[in-house]
Structures are given as structure tokens and as C-alpha cells.
Design a protein around this nucleic acid. Structure first.
Length: 292
DNA sequence: CCGTGTTTAGCCCATT
DNA sequence: AATGGGCTAAACACGG
């Protein structure tokens, strides 16, 4: 596989699949979730090739978002209107790419659904307990160590391929708190989804990054700024899979009252939006696997 | 109307 | 040859 060098591909088609490009875009946002329009913007800003024939590739991209289980749809809050939902990566697709490289997927990521794969309530409760503990430690502090929290990553790996997500999008991460975090505007008041998602999905988040492939790519290196993009306070995967529906219902009965996703903290105007923290859906991860 | 999201279909290519 | 991944096109529904 040829390695893209600096200025290589600047006007040619990048070697990444749409799945990879979409994953890159999502990963680039601290909240790990983006609306479709921002995904478009990310790709067009970084890969000049995609500034043309937008209708073609954007249709393909939308197709991929819907078709692949590795992407989950997260609705907007009722008080944060806008078009379309947010898209995030499935919690368990962190090792979807070979060696973490975007150049090649290892296997297809597929959510399974069968009765025996549903989480046991006791498991969910245990998970939530663990999560609550970690959250308390993480609030206002540093992110939890990955080693303390290795959930359902089928192939634990510390190796970061030069083409890995973290490396490609490293520009946005380098200096937490600096301009590189300009898209922290995405954080809704009083509730840091960044912490939330990175706590929940540590395998898709890494603050320890080096710049490699993307820098070599030759694309614009300015940091992304998404404008005043608002996010749902309670992000919830809404991919209408039976698994997620079942998981949500199971989890709901076990939500501790102090968690943002618990029913007690919901706004009265949105009873149907009584959705748990996506982190709390993590038991879902146990019910997904890469199809062999 | 337009952007978004879903679905189906067909093609090409690489791998098994 | 069969299978799977990826890409493209197209039709349709829905909602802001």
C-alpha cells in the first residue's frame, strides 16, 4: 500500500473509503459527533478532491451512514432545532480499522441482535455503577486512563498506526484548551459531552497524538471551526435497531438519579426523549461484533 | 424547495 | 467461482 506523502493526492482521490472519511470527521470533533453538514465540510476542507462532484460523493456518504452499523444517529434536542441529526461512531467500532489505520478496514462492523445477546439487567447496572464512579473522577479533571477502563475492545492495542484516526486528525487535538479546540463550541452549556463520550468510548479517543498522515497529506492544516453548532444535551443513538431499543429500555430502569440521562433530569417537555447517556449504552458494545 | 435519511440495485475489485 | 467491501446511482419519504 503506497503511503501518501506530503502534497500527494492533494487533488487526487484520497485512498480512504467514505467510511474512513466519515469516521475521521467524527473523530475530529471533541464531542465525537457531527451533523451531516459538518461531515461534508470536514471532508471538503481537508481533501480538495471532494470539492467537486459533491452530489455524487455526498450521496454515497449518506448511503454509508445509513447502511453501516458503525455509525449511529443521535437526535437533536427539541430546544436545539436544526436540520438532520448528529452522527457518531458506534462505541465498539474503535478497532474497526486494521492497526487503527483508515486505509483499510479489518472486517465489517455489524450490530447483532438476538435474545441471548441482550444485556442482562445486572450487567447494565454494574456497568452504570462503574461508569458513575469514573465519571465522578473525570468531571472537571483529566480524562480517565484507558487502561483503567478497557471495555469490550476486542483487540486491545496500544499501537497507533501512522494512518490512525488520532494521527490523521491530530491537528485538532494537539493543545487541549487552545485554538485547536475551537470547536468546543459544540459543548452545550453545563454538560460536557466531550468528557462524556471520551469516558464512554475511550478506545476512540486519545489525547496522546502525533501528526502523521494528515500532515503528510498536504491538505489545509487550519483547525476546524464549526461555528455555533449546538449539540443535544443527551446524545442518544437512535439507529432503530432492536438491540438499541432493547438496551435503552433495559438501562432505563437502572439509571442512577445523578446521571444526566436519568429520567429525573429530563426536561418535562420531552418525555419521549427520555434517553440515557450514550455512555450508558455501552453494554451495547457487548452485543456488537465484527462480522467474520 | 432543499437537505437529510433510507433503501435498493448494479458494478468493480480484491480476497478466499 | 463465491464472497465481501466499496462506490455510484436512483427513488422515495420526511421535515425544516
Amino acid at each position: 500500500m503506497p503511503r501518501p506523502g506530503r502534497n500527494t493526492y492533494s487533488d487526487q482521490k484520497p485512498p480512504y473509503s467514505y467510511i474512513s472519511l466519515t469516521a475521521m470527521a467524527i473523530q475530529s470533533c471533541p464531542e465525537k459527533m457531527l451533523p451531516l453538514s459538518e461531515i461534508y465540510k470536514f471532508i471538503m476542507e481537508r481533501f480538495p478532491y471532494y470539492r467537486e462532484n459533491t452530489q455524487r460523493w455526498q450521496n454515497s456518504l449518506r448511503h454509508n451512514l445509513s447502511f453501516n452499523d458503525c455509525f449511529i444517529k443521535i437526535p437533536r434536542r427539541p430546544d436545539q432545532p436544526g436540520k438532520g441529526s448528529f452522527w457518531a461512531l458506534h462505541p465498539n467500532c474503535g478497532d474497526m480499522f486494521e492497526n487503527g489505520s483508515f486505509l483499510r478496514r479489518r472486517k465489517r462492523f455489524k450490530v447483532l441482535f438476538s435474545a441471548e445477546h441482550l444485556p442482562k439487567p445486572s450487567d447494565a447496572a454494574h456497568y452504570i455503577q462503574q461508569h458513575a464512579k469514573l465519571r465522578m473522577g473525570a468531571l472537571g479533571a483529566h480524562l480517565p486512563q484507558m487502561s483503567s477502563y478497557n471495555l469490550s475492545v476486542s483487540q486491545p492495542s496500544t499501537f497507533k498506526h501512522p494512518f490512525a484516526i488520532e494521527n490523521i486528525i491530530a491537528r485538532d487535538y494537539k493543545m487541549p484548551g487552545s485554538l485547536a479546540f475551537s470547536n468546543m463550541q459544540c459543548v452545550s452549556a453545563g454538560y460536557q459531552i466531550h468528557n462524556q463520550l471520551s469516558t464512554a468510548w475511550p478506545h476512540v479517543y486519545s489525547g496522546n497524538v502525533i501528526d502523521a498522515e494528515y500532515a503528510a497529506y498536504g491538505g489545509p492544516l487550519k483547525s476546524m471551526s464549526h461555528g455555533a453548532q449546538s449539540l443535544p444535551t443527551i446524545p442518544v443513538p437512535i439507529k432503530p435497531t432492536p438491540t438499541s431499543v432493547a438496551s435503552i429500555s433495559v438501562l432505563h430502569s437502572h439509571l442512577p438519579p445523578f446521571l444526566p440521562g436519568s429520567p429525573q433530569s429530563l426536561s418535562p417537555g420531552s418525555p419521549k426523549q427520555s434517553s440515557p447517556d450514550p455512555a450508558l449504552l455501552h453494554p451495547l458494545a457487548a452485543h456488537c461484533q465484527e462480522v467474520t
